Amino acid sequence: MSAQLGRTARGVVGIAARCVCGNPTVVATSPRLDDGSPFPTFYYLTHPAATAAMSTLEAEHVMPELAAMLEDEDVAAQYLRAHEAFLADRAQFGDVPEIAGVSSGGMPTRVKCLHALAGHALAAGPGVNPIGDAALARSSWSPERCACVSPGAAHGDAAG
């Protein structure tokens, strides 16, 4: 994880999703870091290719299009349920009053960070977070194929 992030990973309580090759894709992070800071982004996307794909979507201004999906009552209700599920998952690792009711990515009413929403979608599985699922579907990265191999490495040698 630290190699993926380019820094020491902080507050990790588990691997929430993995690449098909086994490398971490999403980590679950403590809602309160060791230094005492509250950290609402429980699901943190670590996979470099997935992170780059979400950055590309944000740079291509896909977020307003995804936010428009919330005009559909069914999608908005599913997004609210995703928010509630996120909060329940995080609550298992402690109560942090400063972030009570705050999930990540703009849930339950906005689309603010595709990295966080994709991380939640990958950790929770398809059908839980409709905006995270839509971002993953629109991206150039897929959880179905490994993108951990560096261009110069032999097939199967993970660089992550």
Rank of each mutant, 00 (worst) to 15 (best):
V27C: 13
A50F: 03
L57M: 11
P48V: 07
V26A: 09
T51H: 11
A53V: 06
E65P: 00
H47L: 07
L33F: 10
Y79C: 04
T56I: 09
P64M: 10
P38Q: 06
A59R: 15
A67T: 11
V27A: 13
A52G: 11
L57D: 06
T25M: 15
L57Q: 06
A59D: 14
T56N: 00
T29M: 14
L66E: 03
R81D: 13
V26M: 01
A59F: 10
P31V: 08
D74P: 00
E60N: 10
L45G: 01
A85G: 04
T51D: 10
P31D: 08
M54R: 03
T41R: 14
Y44K: 09
A52T: 05
A59M: 13
F39S: 12
L45T: 01
T29L: 03
T46Q: 04
A68F: 10
G36P: 05
E58C: 08
D34L: 14
M54F: 04
A50V: 04
Q78V: 03
R32N: 10
R81W: 09
V75Q: 02
A59Q: 14
A68S: 14
F86K: 08
T29E: 13
A77R: 14
A77T: 03
A28Q: 10
D34I: 06
P64F: 05
F39H: 15
A50H: 02
E65C: 05
E65N: 01
A77Y: 05
T25D: 04
A52S: 07
M54H: 02
P38A: 09
A53N: 01
A76H: 10
E71F: 12
E84L: 15
A50R: 01
V62S: 07
F86H: 13
P48Y: 05
D34N: 14
S55T: 03
A82V: 07
S37Q: 14
D34Q: 14
F86V: 07
L33Y: 09
L33E: 07
S55P: 00
R81G: 00
L70Q: 09
Q78S: 10
